[in-house]
Write a protein that binds this DNA or RNA. Sequence first.
RNA 1: CGGGGUGUAGCGCAGCCCGGUUAGCGCAUCUGGUUUGGGACCAGAGGGUCGCAGGUUCGAAUCCUGCCACCCCGACCA
Length: 491
Amino acid sequence: MAKFLTNREENYSQWYNDLVNKADLAENSAVRGCMVIKPYGYAIWEKIQSELDRMFKATGHVNAYFPLFIPKSFFSREAAHVEGFAKECAVVTHYRLKNDEEGRGIVVDPTAKLEEELIIRPTSETIIWNSYKNWIQSYRDLPLLINQWANVVRWEMRTRLFLRTTEFLWQEGHTAHATREEAIEETVRMINIYSDFAENYMALPVIKGYKSENERFAGAHDTYAIEALMQDGKALQAGTSHFLGQNFAKAFDVQFTDKNGKLDYVWATSWGLSTRMIGALIMAHSDNHGLVIPPKLAPLQVVIIPIFKNEEQLSAISARADMIKSELEKAGISVKYDNRDNNTPGWKFADYELKGVPVRVALGPRDIQNNTIETARRDTLKKETIRQDEVISHVKYLLEDIQKNIYEKALKFRTENTYYTDSWSEFVDILENRGGFIMAHWDGTAETEEKIKEETKATIRVIPFDSPEEKGNCIYSGKPSERRVLFARSY
RNA sequence: CGGGGUGUAGCGCAGCCCGGUUAGCGCAUCUGGUUUGGGACCAGAGGGUCGCAGGUUCGAAUCCUGCCACCCCGACCA
């Protein structure tokens, strides 16, 4: 068979770019580092949005929207926060263009300079806390549990479709609480929602844990993250939840009166998950035939393809296909009947495989004769011929089984590529030659983490929540350590 | 910002080293016909400021200079 996609084993980056392009998910735009998300890619994002949104609302959160522009002065109130983001901000300095008198076309009107520059949000903590200041006076106003679906801009030096683009779409939750304990509880609740979403919807096994001080969000007391392993052996941070302490409340002077009439600063959290998840989906499950989308997030779950020689056959097949389609739809399954006659069945088979549609149903003259249908599942590419009256139950079974199977496949891959080592030379060797997760001892200092990063490009992805206490010696410094942490090279 | 690479039809590329009539191939598109159980075949057609600007030359896709864009590898990061 002809090759339509770059081979994944030959060149992982090229395979990834090629797949994003050929599966019609996105393309590079004319704007530096920004991408155009095409309808099919956006449909996947809409599925992610709707499932997450449901989970947020079920835990008492509501949606709101805050401005794209942040006055520079807001942004500089929290010292660590500004330090973390200053290097990658787009800044608006003027508000008008004009025709150049010397005929050089449209130019910025120098007389239209803003008195205070506006930052295009790289994240919204500051503008949101400026509002919260007015919204919160009493313990009765708390907790405040708000989420925003938005775009943000971070002027990264190097970009990559979905994984790191200059502008990206995400959701960011920003909550305010009366007590430290409650805020920490919220931070944990949200990282659990993310990992639940990753595992049960994305079919992506993740490791939950704390970020080390070096990797923490700018302005946070503590950052929790979920980390996933991609098929090329690199780690991908898939979602983060931050305990912000009273940092932003103090910076924006958000105080409330508690039950005892005492004034105190509120406790905050923020948490976010982005279109990067689409990149994770691609890199975790896809193969050399194209995308593999978990059924729960597939914009299209089933495609029915007719195989016919003439109009007469097509109409007989269509009658049956329409019936199957409406029955599947009644069962809550999304279905397309592709009866276009300008492509051959073989072409359609390959195309829907490239797009990652989980289940394909083929109907031809043979099937009409025998009262059968042919099903094919995207994960294993296995085909089966079944009785037509079994189609609904079989498709339902396939969707569930594919969801389960690709999760298990990803988990198996992660297990096989997670190494426990106490030897520095083996540590280096794994990173150089195999990739994957490494569970190793660490002395807990930022200096050691920094040195390991310099020498191997690996960072501490997380200190896993469930990493058991185990006495050992730091892989790098040899100093005593209480538990293993997760190292990997990352995106 | 450093190191490497690429820019030729909608997409993917050859031609460039060693300058020479009309710039070529595959895919895609359009027309007609035959096909259709794994990316069909035949015949015909349309589509190009060879990234941009200069220069050398009788003559430049090809040589020289400058600029621009994109990709990959680093530094940065969700």
